[in-house]
């Protein structure tokens, strides 16, 4: 287990969040506290234990590949914060 030491601005970037300097210092302190607590997991020998992803068994679910009713285009776009005609609008990505 790595020592609890979080590079908060790097993590914020990965999270697509921006933090002010004060926020960064505040979160860094709090999260290092939480990580130090989480380090209690290191005290236990977990080497050979099988990991559990879900408490109940999970299987791939397949359905018959045939047409069925779904959302209309209008329904999909109904909550768009910005749209142009039948499309979601996003900031320009190609120069």
């Amino acid at each position: 287990m790595p020592a609890a030491d979080i590079d908060i601005q790097k993590v914020a970037k990965l999270s697509r969040l921006s933090l002010t300097t004060e926020e960064a210092a505040h979160y860094e302190k709090q999260l290092n506290g939480v990580l130090a607590y989480i380090d209690t997991l290191t005290a236990h020998d977990l080497g050979d234990v099988e990991p559990t992803a879900h408490a109940m068994p999970v299987f791939d679910v397949l359905r018959v590949d045939e047409e069925r009713p779904g959302f209309t285009q209008e329904k999909c776009l109904s909550n768009a914060p910005k749209r142009v005609g039948d499309q979601f609008q996003i900031p320009k990505v190609i120069e």
Binding site: L41, H44, E50, P51
Partner: peptide
């Protein structure tokens, strides 16, 4: 270090 380890603890 974290996620896999926690999944193992979850098994226990």
């Amino acid at each position: 270090a974290y996620y896999l380890r926690a999944q193992k603890a979850r098994t226990l």
